[in-house]
Amino acid sequence: MLSVSNLHAFYGKSHVLHGVNLFVGRGEIVSLLGRNGVGRSTTIKAIMGLVSARGTVAFQGRDDLVGLKPHEIALRGLGYVPEDRAIFPDITVRENLLLGSKGRQATPRWTMDDMFALFPRLEERADTAAGVLSGGEQQMLTLCRTLIGDPDLIMIDEPTEGLAPLIVGQVAELLREIKRRGVSILLVEQKLAIALDISDRVYVMGHGAVVFEGTPAQLRENDRVRKEWLAV
């Protein structure tokens, strides 16, 4: 459903992605792995129209995503959860969630009440400024905010970074729930164990290009790739 071919991306003059190819099928969880700085975040941002890019990105049968503006891409059904979370600190939790809603789909997969049922903590704090939430709560809030927009595919950048183990478990559970509701996931995840556990397929990136693709089982068996591209 999402197919990226020969994607190049640039920050000003610096050329960061050198022809990335990847594919995410309907209802799949696909992880993008690699060391820091190899271009995983940039790949997601380029798909979302947030950095200038060249190449082809096709989504749900239309291959003209490159060059569209981020809001046009979002309205096509792509969701984005950035690694810095980018919650809106001065407005309330509820308002943060309201902003996620695009206000046009008749029967969205997710409603505000769903979110509050999944994370009672967000309901308790619905009317406080989002800036005072803990790191874990903020992470849940960003995920929920994007889900309320009812994306068909959601791209999530390092959702477990800096979270306590208990919360990491909750995030993993939410990812599975997202998949159960028929939403595809393109995930950037630093914690290899989790990524291998929940993904259907994985890509490993190195220096702005994909250097390995396969199933989690294939990656587990491939010591060379793990040593060369993932070991820290």
Binding site: P70, I73, A74, P82, A86, F88, D90, L98, L99
Partner: peptide, 25 residues
């Protein structure tokens, strides 16, 4: 108003507001 909400959110993270599907430009 909704546009007011969008404006207040865009004060901190305009890119993110746009990535949520709002026509920030």
């Amino acid at each position: 108003t909704r546009i007011g909400l969008i404006i207040r959110a865009a004060l901190t993270h305009a890119d993110m507001v746009q990535a949520l599907g709002h026509n920030v430009p």
